[in-house]
Each structure stands twice: as structure tokens, then as C-alpha cells.
């Protein structure tokens, strides 16, 4: 640590004299931090503030990230600006998979971070980090453009801290240690990954979130607490409707007709 601080000071002193000395790390990080191209990818309300962030008043061009690209192939940064719904989620994951490394994700606003005010909606994903690794989270509903600028600067600081030898996309071995994230598919009860229900409509998600990939690490995203599955009423044929107006259990007609589950209709008959 002390050695790094000394070298930084020497470097600053030299720059004042008009002499520029750089390490490969520093030069490489400077190049990447100064030209982060975001994907023009607006989901909901936060996208309006994202546009304000790109336009004249807040002018993100000062930080080198003004070039919004419509294609994920050309983008470095995905700003998840708004509520991610279960119907949109497969597209979001697929777009992320299509981005080239190094790629970053900013989770903008309460909805993208946790579901926000719409957290309990049956079609809302409770945070995009259940399916994607997120680098920077921004609170707020919606965050002001200044907050998004701050998130961009935070991301730039994260990039400054990276070391070439430890980046996941330059890993040892034949292929880089980057992975395609599993794209969920639509199922009868909710989103499925490889045929297993991971996010039921009207229920709690069965996945654990990905941790930040800031230093090249990521979790598997496997089903973390499958015991919740037992308590989800659609899946529990023993639960009966307690009260006519309380959505606590399975109504007979849903159990018998709508979900077409064999074991329940057998039990009913």
C-alpha cells in the first residue's frame, strides 16, 4: 500500500513538471474509464432521467460516456434504468450476454435494485442482481441525473482499481473466464432456468443474488434457498383458502382449472 502511494505521489509531481510516466495498468485503465459507452436501453421512468443525464444540462460527455449505442455489441455499460419485469427479463439477460467484455452494469433506481415500489407485483423481478452481476447500485425513485453521474464516477473509480493480471476476461487457460448467464424461459407458473422454476408469478424468487464482479469474482447464481419453494402456495396442494378475500392459498377453481395440476385435481375428485 505504502509503495503504491509513494509511486502515485511521484507520478503527480512529475505530471506537474510536464513529464508523464505511466504504468501499463494505469494507462489501460485510463483508456477504459474515459470511454465508457452506455447502451441506450431504457426500461421505465428512470430512462427519462437517463436521457436528461445524456443531454445538455447534465452533459455526461464531460465524463466520456456520451455515446449511447443501440447495439449491445458496441456497448460497455448497461444502465438498467427502470423496473425489470418477468416478461422483459429474458431480453435483459440476453442483451447482457451479447455485450463484449469488459462489461459493466449500473442498477439505476429502486426498481432495478430491489423491485422498488413495485416489489410485490406478480410480474416484477425483485432486483436485476438475481440474474446479472451489478457493479454500482443507485438508490432513489427515480435517482436524479446527478446521482447517475455519481454512479458513473464510482464505476470509473472501480475501473481505476483493477489490475490487468487479475481481470476475469484475461484469465489463465484456453478461454477467458467469462460466462454466458443463463437466459430464463417462460413457464406456466413463472420464469424457469433449465426447466426449474426460479421466479414464480405472485411468489418470492428462489434465487440468490450475484455479488459484484468488481474484482473479477462472481457467484454461481444457483438456487440458494429452495426451502421457500415449499411455502409458495401454488406449489403446496395442502394449503386451502382461509378467507374468501385473502390471497393466501389456492382457490379451488385455480387449483382445479387454471393451473391444471394433476395431483390437485386428483385430490379434488
Amino acid at each position: 500500500m505504502g509503495h503504491m502511494a509513494d509511486s502515485d505521489n511521484i507520478q503527480l509531481d512529475l505530471e506537474k513538471q510536464g513529464v508523464f510516466v505511466s504504468t501499463v495498468n494505469r494507462f489501460y485503465n485510463w483508456g477504459r474509464r474515459s470511454s465508457i459507452w452506455p447502451m441506450s436501453f431504457g426500461l421505465a421512468c428512470c430512462a427519462i432521467e437517463m436521457m436528461a443525464f445524456g443531454l445538455s444540462r447534465y452533459d455526461v460527455a464531460r465524463f466520456g460516456a456520451e455515446l449511447f449505442r443501440a447495439s449491445p455489441r458496441q456497448a460497455d455499460l448497461m444502465i438498467v434504468a427502470g423496473t425489470v419485469t418477468k416478461k422483459m427479463l429474458p431480453q435483459v439477460v440476453r442483451l447482457y450476454n451479447q455485450m463484449a467484455e469488459p462489461r459493466y452494469v449500473i442498477s439505476m433506481g429502486a426498481c432495478a435494485t430491489s423491485g422498488g415500489p413495485f416489489r410485490d407485483g406478480y410480474n416484477v423481478v425483485r432486483g436485476v442482481d438475481l440474474f446479472l452481476p451489478v457493479d454500482v447500485y443507485i438508490p432513489g425513485c427515480p435517482p436524479r441525473p446527478e446521482a447517475l453521474l455519481h454512479a458513473l464516477i464510482t464505476l470509473q473509480e472501480q475501473i481505476d482499481g483493477q489490475r490487468l493480471g487479475r481481470l476475469r476476461w484475461y484469465g489463465k487457460g484456453d478461454k477467458p473466464q467469462t460466462q454466458d448467464f443463463p437466459v430464463p424461459t417462460f413457464g406456466a407458473q413463472g420464469l424457469e432456468v433449465d426447466g426449474a422454476l426460479v421466479d414464480p408469478v405472485g411468489g418470492l424468487p428462489l434465487l440468490g443474488p450475484y455479488t459484484s464482479p468488481g474484482h473479477g469474482e462472481q457467484k454461481s447464481g444457483e438456487i440458494e434457498h429452495p426451502e421457500i419453494a415449499r411455502h409458495f402456495p401454488i406449489m403446496d396442494p395442502a394449503v386451502e383458502l382461509e378467507h374468501a378475500l385473502k390471497a393466501r392459498g389456492v382457490a379451488p377453481e385455480i387449483a382445479a382449472d387454471d393451473l391444471k395440476r394433476d395431483e390437485v385435481s386428483d385430490a379434488a375428485s
Binding site: 426500461l43 421505465a44 421512468c45 427519462i48 423496473t83 419485469t85 413495485f118 410485490d120 407485483g121 410480474n123
Partner: peptide
């Protein structure tokens, strides 16, 4: 349906006043 975030259903669980900020997010 890509932004179907169950506004109407959540409104039935909120009180009348709690719904006021939700209406902001309809046509944002």
C-alpha cells in the same frame, strides 16, 4: 407486457393516499 408492473393490483393493497405516488409512475 414488458413493463407490466401490476400497478392496478398493488393499488388494491395500498391505501388511497399511498396510491398517489404510484400514479406518478403511470405516465412518467
Amino acid at each position: 407486457g414488458y413493463l407490466h408492473r401490476n400497478h392496478e393490483q398493488l393499488a388494491e393493497v395500498n391505501t388511497y393516499l399511498q396510491n398517489m405516488p404510484y400514479t406518478d409512475r403511470l405516465d412518467y
